[in-house]
Amino acid sequence: MHVVFYRNLNLGHAGSPNREQLEGALKAGGAAQVKSFQTNGTVLFKAEDPEGVVAAAAGELVAVAGYADAAIVRPLADLEGLLALGVFEKHESPRTYRETVTFFQGGKKPSWSMPWTNSKDDVDVLHIGDGIALSLIRKPRNSAGSPTFELERATGGVATTRTRGSIDRLLKAAATWR
């Protein structure tokens, strides 16, 4: 089982497909089963060639909704293993606004020493694995820190972020869907 994380996709909003269009594009691309999760462009799917399915679906998403942003595919097992490391539990802080998981691809790997804190002191990157970063964000004023911004700036690639709560709910949903 795999998950595709679409960047800047909000189901039903201008420039984004609705749930039926998103799931239909992945099925037309060759996915055996598809389940859109929440409204943030996170989709569980089963396929022999997951990257090929997402690539094939890209043209359909442009045609039906004008959506043409990045899509990052990860095996579900990667997420389970990453959260099992207990990284967030080792860095609990009352200053934390959200625990986040950022998926990134392209460009170079960040050269930061872990944990790394940005200059605005609103993002702590705690762990970087193979295209996945675990971070804490703070919201010192009206806006929260952005690990997506920090990783895109450091790598020159693209990134998309979900909260740990979203990933936890995704894993629970996947367990009942298998």
Score class of each variant (00 low, 15 high):
Ala68Lys: 05
Phe37Pro: 01
Lys35Glu: 07
Ile128His: 03
Leu82Ile: 10
Leu136His: 09
Phe37Leu: 11
Pro94Gln: 09
Ser93Trp: 00
Val73Cys: 07
Ile72Tyr: 03
Val125Pro: 00
Thr163Ala: 12
Lys120Ile: 08
Ala63Trp: 15
Asn18Ile: 13
Val64Arg: 14
Asn118Gln: 09
Gly29Ala: 12
His91Leu: 03
Ile128Ser: 06
Leu83Cys: 14
Ala65Glu: 04
Val123Leu: 03
Arg74Cys: 02
Ala28Ile: 05
Asn8Gln: 10
Gly81Cys: 03
His13Met: 15
Leu9Phe: 09
Lys46Asn: 06
Ala77Gly: 08
Pro94Val: 03
Ala32Phe: 07
Lys27Tyr: 06
Val53Glu: 04
Thr160Val: 01
Gly30Cys: 06
Ile132Glu: 08
Leu22Glu: 05
Gln105Thr: 13
Leu126Tyr: 07
Asp49Val: 04
His2Asn: 07
Gly15Tyr: 10
Asn40His: 09
Phe45Val: 06
Asp121Ala: 12
Ser93Glu: 03
Tyr97Ile: 02
Glu152Lys: 04
Asn18Cys: 10
Ala154Leu: 15
Gly59Gln: 10
Val53Met: 06
Leu76Glu: 05
Asp124Val: 12
Ala47Gln: 00
Thr160Phe: 02
Ile167Pro: 02
Asp122Cys: 04
Asp124Trp: 08
Glu99Met: 08
Ala63Tyr: 14
Trp177Asp: 11
Val43Cys: 04
Asp49Met: 11
Val73Asn: 08
Ser135Arg: 00
Gly131Ser: 14
Phe5Met: 09
Trp116Asn: 01
Ser36Lys: 00
Phe37Trp: 08
Val43Tyr: 01
Met114Asp: 13
Phe149Leu: 13
Ala159Trp: 10
Arg74Pro: 05
Glu51Trp: 11
Pro50Ser: 11
Phe5Thr: 04
Gly12Leu: 10
Val53Asp: 05
Ala133Thr: 14
Ala159Ser: 02
Ala31Met: 13
Asp121Gly: 13
Leu136Trp: 02
Ala56His: 01
Phe37Tyr: 08
Asn142Trp: 00
Thr176Ile: 13
Arg164Trp: 13
Pro115His: 06
Val123Phe: 04
Leu82Asn: 10
Val73Thr: 10
Ser93Met: 03
Ser113Glu: 14
Arg178His: 15
Thr161Lys: 04
Ala14Met: 04
Pro75Asp: 02
Arg98Tyr: 15
Val64Glu: 05
Val62Arg: 15
